[in-house]
Computed example of a mutant assay.
Amino acid sequence: MPNPLFYAKILLFGEYGIIENSQGLTLPYSFYKGTLKFSDLTSDFEKKSNQALIKYAQYLEGLDLPKGFEIDIPRLNKDISKGLFFDSNIPQGYGVGSSGALVAAIFERYAVKKHNPENISKEELKNLKSVFGMLENFFHGKSSGIDPLICYMNLPILIENKENVDRVAIPEEVYGKGAIFLIDSEMTGETGPMVQIFFEKLKNDGFRKTLKEEFIRYNNACIDAFLRKDMNPFFRNLKKLSLWAYEHFRPMIPEKIFNIWKKGLETNAYYLKLCGSGGGGYILGFAKDYEKAEKMLEGFHKEVIYRF
């Protein structure tokens, strides 16, 4: 049986907002992927990955996972001693779910009870999300469990609120003028410190108020319009969302992205938003006319993830 591949994920909408109960929309991204493999650990990459798995297995041993979601730790340890490693091209610190793919791969192979992603109920999805949060806490300090869930399900997921998630159909891609794309900030970001900054900001009543009354409203409106493929309200709310982030998420926006973020808002040629927690990694771009945006963003490495 071939090794299952676990793809990266893109959080299109919901960064930070989902902590405060906003909706979120996330999709698998097959350009990057990872799988568990065995080797004689001759390369540095394989050696490092194997050593990281030793530490991770020790962490898992200390977890009290709910019934039906336990991990076969002895089998995992045995395989690690035989040269198990995670072969992945998913960049770390880029907001595309490198640890989520690893957690999903470990769960898929070593969960005592097998779960079939194709016929998981909404209630089971909720339980899986919670278990994946426990499994991913090792990497982020506090995880929502969303990233591993996306990687495991390999389907677009609508985050309805803190508790509930469901599968969702996104509009079929058509090769039109518009595009959603990634911009490489050429620096890695660390989730932990960024999330810490956000929690510090939340202590300010004014920030909490504008987050709930503006950011979450624009964010949810974008998701609703995108799923209905209603592009006029989509871009109208997207501009408000991008401007809000430019004003309130400054520490999360990589320095070399500031100017192009502002330029997008001034020209309306494209709009930018964070992809995950920010601080580095990828930034998300949205343009009605991608060719025009591409010319304006010359010098930056871009990857198109969806056309419309």
Results as ranks from 00 to 15, higher is better:
residue 2 P to A: 07
residue 2 P to E: 10
residue 4 P to E: 13
residue 4 P to S: 15
residue 7 Y to K: 10
residue 7 Y to A: 15
residue 8 A to S: 09
residue 12 L to V: 15
residue 17 G to Y: 01
residue 21 N to F: 11
residue 22 S to T: 03
residue 22 S to A: 07
residue 23 Q to F: 12
residue 23 Q to M: 15
residue 32 Y to M: 11
residue 34 G to F: 03
residue 36 L to S: 09
residue 37 K to N: 13
residue 42 T to D: 14
residue 44 D to E: 14
residue 45 F to P: 11
residue 54 I to E: 11
residue 55 K to Q: 14
residue 57 A to F: 02
residue 57 A to S: 15
residue 59 Y to G: 09
residue 62 G to Y: 06
residue 63 L to F: 05
residue 63 L to A: 09
residue 70 E to K: 12
residue 72 D to L: 02
residue 73 I to D: 01
residue 78 K to V: 09
residue 82 K to I: 04
residue 83 G to E: 05
residue 84 L to Y: 07
residue 84 L to C: 12
residue 84 L to I: 10
residue 84 L to E: 12
residue 85 F to H: 15
residue 89 N to R: 05
residue 90 I to V: 10
residue 90 I to W: 04
residue 92 Q to D: 08
residue 93 G to E: 09
residue 94 Y to N: 06
residue 94 Y to H: 07
residue 96 V to Q: 06
residue 96 V to A: 09
residue 97 G to P: 05
residue 98 S to W: 00
residue 99 S to N: 07
residue 110 Y to E: 13
residue 115 H to K: 14
residue 122 K to R: 12
residue 131 V to M: 04
residue 135 L to D: 15
residue 139 F to V: 10
residue 139 F to K: 10
residue 139 F to N: 13
residue 139 F to I: 09
residue 141 G to S: 12
residue 141 G to I: 08
residue 143 S to R: 03
residue 144 S to G: 08
residue 145 G to M: 00
residue 149 L to R: 10
residue 153 M to K: 11
residue 157 I to Y: 00
residue 161 N to S: 09
residue 165 V to W: 01
residue 170 I to M: 04
residue 170 I to R: 02
residue 172 E to R: 04
residue 173 E to V: 03
residue 173 E to I: 02
residue 174 V to M: 09
residue 176 G to E: 10
residue 178 G to P: 03
residue 183 I to E: 06
residue 191 T to H: 01
residue 191 T to E: 05
residue 191 T to Q: 05
residue 193 P to C: 00
residue 193 P to H: 03
residue 200 E to M: 05
residue 203 K to L: 10
residue 208 R to L: 11
residue 211 L to N: 08
residue 211 L to E: 08
residue 214 E to D: 13
residue 218 Y to K: 06
residue 218 Y to V: 05
residue 219 N to M: 06
residue 220 N to H: 04
residue 221 A to Y: 02
residue 221 A to I: 08
residue 223 I to H: 04
residue 223 I to V: 13
residue 224 D to Q: 12
residue 225 A to Y: 01
residue 226 F to H: 04
residue 230 D to R: 03
residue 231 M to F: 02
residue 233 P to Y: 00
residue 233 P to G: 11
residue 233 P to V: 01
residue 234 F to C: 13
residue 235 F to V: 07
residue 240 K to E: 15
residue 240 K to H: 13
residue 244 W to M: 10
residue 244 W to K: 11
residue 244 W to Y: 14
residue 245 A to S: 15
residue 247 E to P: 06
residue 248 H to L: 04
residue 252 M to L: 03
residue 252 M to A: 04
residue 252 M to H: 01
residue 253 I to D: 00
residue 254 P to T: 01
residue 257 I to C: 00
residue 260 I to P: 04
residue 261 W to A: 07
residue 263 K to P: 04
residue 265 L to S: 08
residue 266 E to D: 14
residue 271 Y to N: 11
residue 274 L to M: 04
residue 276 G to R: 00
residue 277 S to Q: 07
residue 278 G to Y: 02
residue 280 G to L: 01
residue 282 Y to M: 02
residue 282 Y to L: 01
residue 283 I to N: 12
residue 284 L to V: 14
residue 284 L to D: 08
residue 285 G to F: 01
residue 286 F to Y: 08
residue 290 Y to H: 09
residue 296 M to P: 12
residue 296 M to F: 02
residue 297 L to W: 00
residue 298 E to K: 02
residue 299 G to F: 03
residue 304 V to F: 00
residue 305 I to Q: 05
residue 305 I to L: 07
